[in-house]
Design a protein around this nucleic acid. Structure first.
Lengths: 249, 249
DNA sequence: TCAACTGCTTGATACTGGTCAACGAGAACG
DNA sequence: CGTTCTCGTTGACCAGTATCAAGCAGTTGA
């Protein structure tokens, strides 16, 4: 760490703020929504908070037994599935407040890898215990169903993207999605660091890294964005939106 | 209906067998797994069974308020999302014993259309009531989580297919998947009717209908399958499998 | 029975994105 | 401080799939 970017400064202040779920500033994004203080305290007692994960390290790997869901507290993750012949499909990028590992409930075995793309911190939610608590706290039970449902909706969106969209549209959608999610967390919607490589973006979007690179350059030439390595600046938000709606075939 | 195919004969006998969940022959595929007789009875009382849906009719449409999940009892459905500009992405095909509508839990509004591809029958599971019962019946609660998790895993598989596979591989995977699911239900794994058009297959697989048609013809020329309109006969199961593992780029 | 329609197949051609290759920039390391 | 490695950019070329078009078969309905 040579110097603290604005983002890192912010992360640190957030980290100090939240000692547990009941005071966690990610409450709106994460689990304990609509719980009363007593229920919050019970939830707190189950959750292991602030487990650090170094950049590049796996939080879990496909094939490992499932025990817990994980919520990103600070940092950035990718999850990916590996096909038999070894090719990687990135199935999602996860930022603070998002839950990971729900794919593993069905078989009690993780079906994808979760890798930290920057130094991160997660909360561990032992699923059996959470499930028990959910039985007594309807709001928690319902929220879990909702979170899983949201994941399904998100996946459908990616399927639409992969099945119907052209390369330019995919990247436009990707950039707008990132921008929106950063904004939701109080970061700039117009200027952000990509935590992932071009190859990982490509894997997620069903494109090769060269194509990703080319299209980012093209967007820059068109004055839509400014690209400096992994720093993206959104210059013309509307223009990017228009790609999504007009260049449809 | 000019004549009864073997499949239809079988459907009818199944239909007579199951009057409700506790005797439903789809139990292993559907909801009530691991429940005792008393719990079964409670579940039975919630579920509206045997609601018919005519071929071509929608069970629900995107935008409609969410009230219930639906289990396919007899028949065949597709679900699809429509992008703003009107193009359709088929997100799944659903056969007997499979649950539909889980995407709607997150927002209390259906996010996709579910259309019957043949005359069908569904069980309606009012979600609020199911959720209540789940609080008292841990096995049911857990099973719901599992079913949703399985949907997420399935979607990841489709993302892998759409993101990484060539047209031939996609179709090979599609045929093997159908074959397996028919077999699981006691139908032939080697000879089955496609309920959907080439265009719907294409939409699901991220291909154009002409490509689907061409590749089915090619598979036939290679002696892998026999195609007669929508009747598919698997001639060389291993050969199809090999496409999945060898023609990877 | 014929007309109209939908779904399917096949061919010719176009074009998007993939592949291969070379090179540059920045980070990591000895 | 230079070496090495990873990541990213760009160009030339190619392959796979889409597009456009024509025609066929089966189904529906008058």
């Amino acid at each position: 760490m040579t110097m603290l970017s604005p983002i890192q400064v912010r992360d640190i202040s957030i980290r100090q703020l939240r000692q547990n779920c009941s005071t966690c500033s990610l409450r709106e994004l994460c689990l304990p929504i609509g719980l009363n203080p007593e229920e919050m305290r019970e939830l707190d007692s189950l959750i292991t908070q602030g487990r650090p994960v170094k950049r590049g390290d796996g939080l879990y790997r496909a094939g490992e037994p499932f025990r817990s869901l994980f919520a990103v507290r600070v940092g950035f993750f990718k999850s990916s599935v590996i096909s038999e012949d070894g090719r990687e499909q990135v199935t999602g990028f996860h930022m603070s407040g998002e839950l990971m590992g729900m794919d593993a409930i069905s078989s009690d075995v993780h079906t994808c890898d979760a890798i930290a793309l920057e130094d991160s911190e997660v909360c561990e939610l032992p699923f059996a215990e959470i499930e028990n608590l959910a039985r007594e706290v309807p709001a928690l039970q319902h929220h879990l169903y909702k979170v899983m449902s949201r994941e399904i909706v998100r996946d459908h969106g990616v399927m639409l993207l992969l099945g119907n969209m052209k390369a330019e549209e995919r990247l436009a959608a990707f950039l707008l999605n990132l921008s929106q999610r950063f904004a939701l967390r109080g970061y700039s919607a117009t200027s952000f660091h990509l935590r992932m490589t071009r190859e990982e973006i490509g894997s997620y979007l069903g494109l090769k890294l060269e194509t990703v690179s080319r299209i980012l350059s093209r967007f820059q030439d068109q004055g839509l964005i400014k690209v400096q390595n992994r720093l993206i600046e959104i210059i013309n938000h509307e223009g990017i939106k228009k790609i999504l709606s007009t260049c449809q075939d």
